[in-house]
Design a protein around this nucleic acid. Structure first.
Lengths: 120, 120
DNA sequence: CTCAATGTTCGATGTTCGTGAAACATCGAA
DNA sequence: TTCGATGTTTCACGAACATCGAACATTGAG
C-alpha cells in the first residue's frame, strides 16, 4: 500500500552506528543517498535504479529504518529526503565522509533521477 | 597456519568504500578497530573478544581484506595494526567519524586487550 | 463505481555472513 | 624429534540479505 498507517522512523538518538553502516553497505543504497544529498525531497517516481519496484521499496525501507532517510506520503505518492541534520548531530562527519568517498569512487552510479525530474 | 605464505593486503587505491563499510558493519570488528585506534601494533594474543578463535581469525581476515588493517607475522605470532594513513588518504574523515561514533555508542565494548597487555 | 497509478507485502530463491568445532600447519622450546 | 603454542582453513549450519514476480491495498481520476 502506498499508505501504510505511518512508517516509523527511529528517533535521532535511536539511530545506531551499526544500522547506518549496514544501510550504507550496498551500492544501490549508497547511490540513493547520493541522489538525496541535494537535500531536497524526491518522489519515488523520480528515482531510477536498476532493480525491480519491490526491491527499490525494500532498499528505501532499509534506509528509513536505519534513520538515514525520512519518508512522507502525500496521497498515493511517497517522498524521501535525507535526514542530514539528525545524522550530523549524532555522527558528526560520517555522512560527509561517506558521500565524499562515494563520489570519488562513483559508488552507486547506476542510481539517479529521471530525466524529466524537476531536479534534473 | 600461523604463517600463510603472505597475506595479501589490498593496495591503498584498491580499498573500496563498500568493502570498508562491510568490514565495519559488525560490532566485534568495530571493537577491534577501536582497540587498534591507538596506532600501535598488537599481537593476536592481546586481543580479547567474546568469540571463538576461528571466528576472531575470520574477523581479522575480513578487516585485512578490506584494507582496514595490516597484518605482520613474526615467528609463530601475528600482529595487527590499523592502516590509518591509507584509509585517511583514500576516505578522508571516514575513520575518525566511525571511531567517534563508535566511542559515543560504545560499540564493540566487549572487545579489548588482555589485562597483562603491554598497552593495558 | 470502476480503473489506473503507486507502493507495500508475501512467497520463493540463491547468496552472503557470523559462528564454532575440528583438523591442519608452522614455529619455538625441551 | 616430540610437544605445546599460535593461527589458519575447512566444514556445516542457521540467520540475514538481495532480488524478483505476483498479489494486494490505497488513493485519485473518469
Amino acid at each position: 500500500m502506498v499508505a501504510m498507517k505511518q512508517a516509523r522512523h527511529p528517533a535521532p538518538n535511536e539511530i545506531t552506528l551499526i544500522d547506518v553502516m549496514g544501510a550504507l553497505n550496498d551500492p544501490i543504497r549508497v547511490g540513493l543517498v547520493r541522489v538525496l544529498a541535494d537535500d531536497r525531497e524526491h518522489g519515488w517516481g523520480e528515482l531510477r535504479a536498476p532493480v525491480a519496484k519491490s526491491t527499490l521499496s525494500h532498499h528505501l525501507r532499509v534506509l528509513r529504518d536505519a534513520g538515514v532517510t525520512r519518508t512522507r506520503q502525500e496521497g498515493t505518492r511517497c517522498f524521501v529526503e535525507l535526514r542530514r541534520d539528525d545524522l550530523d548531530a549524532r555522527f558528526p562527519g560520517l555522512l560527509n565522509a561517506v558521500l565524499g568517498a562515494a563520489h570519488r569512487d562513483d559508488v552507486g552510479a547506476h542510481v539517479g533521477l529521471a530525466d524529466d525530474s524537476p531536479s534534473a
